[in-house]
Simulated scan of single mutants.
Amino acid sequence: MLDPKPLTPKEQKVIQEFEAVRPGLGAIAENNIRHNDKTGWADIIADTPESELVVRDGLSSNSFMCRRIGG
C-alpha cells in the first residue's frame, strides 16, 4: 500500500479549522483533500490565500429548500 502524500501546511490548517468547528469534520475535510481528483479541494485550497482560510460566523440562506418547504 502506498503512503498518502504529505499534506501542505495550508491543507493541514483547513483540516484543523474544520475539526475546531465540530469534531469529526476534520476527517471529512482530509478525505476530500486526499480525493482531489474527484472533489477539487486541494486545488481550491492551493489557490486560496492563507489569510482567507479561517472560520467565520455568518448566516446562510437556502432558497432551494425554502421554495420546496413552502410550496
Rank of each mutant, 00 (worst) to 15 (best):
H35V: 10
D37Q: 12
D37L: 03
N62I: 08
N32A: 14
L53R: 11
K13F: 09
R34P: 13
L2C: 14
P4F: 02
N31C: 06
P9C: 10
E50C: 13
S61D: 01
K13C: 00
T39H: 06
A20P: 00
E50V: 15
Q16S: 14
I28M: 07
N62T: 13
H35W: 02
P9S: 14
D47I: 05
T8L: 05
M65K: 13
K5H: 12
A20W: 03
G26S: 07
G24I: 03
G58N: 03
R22V: 06
A27E: 00
R68V: 11
H35F: 12
K5N: 10
N62H: 04
T48N: 08
G71D: 01
C66I: 12
L2K: 15
T48K: 12
N62M: 01
R67D: 04
T8D: 04
K5G: 12
K5R: 12
S61R: 09
K10Q: 14
A27I: 00
A27Y: 07
Q16W: 04
S63F: 05
V14N: 08
V14C: 10
N62A: 02
T48P: 07
K10W: 00
Q12E: 05
G40E: 02
I15C: 08
N36Y: 08
G40P: 02
V21I: 06
L53I: 14
D3L: 15
V14A: 07
F64A: 13
E30V: 13
M65P: 02
R68N: 04
G24S: 04
V21G: 01
A27S: 06
D43A: 13
T48Q: 02
E50D: 10
N36H: 06
R67H: 08
L7A: 13
P23H: 04
R34M: 03
A20K: 09
